[in-house]
Simulated assay, not measured.
Amino acid sequence: MPEYFIVVPKSLNLEQRLLKFPPNFNYSKDFFYYYIAGIIRESVKKHTNENTEINSVINQFIPRSSVIMQGIFRKSKNHVDYLYEDFFGEGRLLHRKNYEPGQCFSYRLPEYYWGDGELEIIKITENTLVRNIKKNNKPTIHNMVDKRFKFLRGYFNLKLFEIDSQAALKDLYAEYKVSGNYKKYLSNVLKVVDFKNGHFPFYHRPNTDGRLHTAITSFPKVCRKHLKYDNEPLAEVDLSASIPFFLSYILNLTVKEAQPMIYYIHRYITITYYPFIC
């Protein structure tokens, strides 16, 4: 069965609303969740200030193209109108900013549905919807990464990765309650759900650290202990402290002397550290 994971606020009372005010059309609960999750994701992308309160994150309207939504789900208009409808005693699930020339309808989630801001992961399984979502959300790989580091992608079998997402979200929320950095909390939760969806990006930053970054190296540190590969926990080994030593030693050697030393260092690292890295 196909599946796709999204993030919504824990205090969202969608199922209660559907029972109390059933739509007058054949609805998809999965699409309701997907649409709301999309607004949350775009809110994180638009808000650039990391040190922010919850109200600052959600008090912005996110443009949503009806053409794109209909390409993902044919009956999207009825669903969006239902989310905007103001039911007595329940209010609206979404606030809307009207259409303007050059600007499509924009939506935001009311702050009273966020509570204290805790998020949860929801699994959607509707076959056609999941297939269309994945078709429209394929991870892109930068040309430089594809040309220079394509061989590395073969070492990752995404089907062998596992994550205890519930434990990861619990740790992220505990971290947020201490730091108060809601933007970071939102961003890290989305990294967890992207990992569950098999999005494994590769980044190369030649103008900064020059390193190749993956979904693991950019994964929240507090959550890395919840990752497994081939049913084995991942272990982190940091060799950065040894780099200045080896570099200074090699630079003090002549080119002729350096060759055997480089070979020796390579052999030493391979024999000593390879079992721990794997």
Score class of each variant (00 low, 15 high):
Tyr249Pro: 03
Ile54Tyr: 04
Phe246Thr: 06
Leu212Ile: 14
Asn51Ser: 12
Ser66Gly: 12
Ser218Asp: 12
Gly210Leu: 03
Val178Glu: 14
Lys184Ser: 05
Phe245Ala: 14
Gly91Pro: 05
Thr52Ser: 15
Val222Ala: 13
Tyr182Thr: 02
Phe195Arg: 02
Phe21Ser: 11
Thr214Lys: 06
Ile141Tyr: 06
Met261Lys: 14
Val80Ala: 09
Met144Asn: 11
Glu162Val: 01
Val145Lys: 03
Glu85Ser: 12
Pro275His: 08
Pro2Met: 09
Asn13Thr: 13
Lys77Met: 09
Tyr185Ala: 01
Ile277Ala: 11
Ile216Cys: 10
Asn78Trp: 08
Gly154Asn: 13
Ala241Glu: 10
Thr217Phe: 14
Gly154Ile: 13
Leu14Glu: 04
Asp81Arg: 10
Asp171Gln: 05
Asp238Glu: 10
Arg153Cys: 07
Asn137Ala: 10
Tyr268Ser: 10
Tyr185Gln: 02
Glu232Asn: 14
His266Asn: 11
Lys184Arg: 15
Tyr4Trp: 08
Asn231Thr: 10
Gln70Arg: 15
Phe156Cys: 03
Arg131Ile: 08
His142Cys: 03
Gly102Gln: 01
Tyr113Ile: 09
Asn13Ile: 05
Glu118Ile: 03
Cys104Phe: 13
Glu232Trp: 07
Arg74His: 03
Val237Arg: 13
His213Met: 09
Asn13Phe: 10
Asn59Arg: 14
Lys191Cys: 05
Lys184Leu: 11
Thr272Pro: 00
Asp230Thr: 00
Asn24Thr: 09
Glu53Met: 05
Leu19Thr: 12
Val237Pro: 04
Cys223Tyr: 05
Leu158Thr: 11
Glu236Gly: 02
Asp146Tyr: 10
Phe195Asp: 00
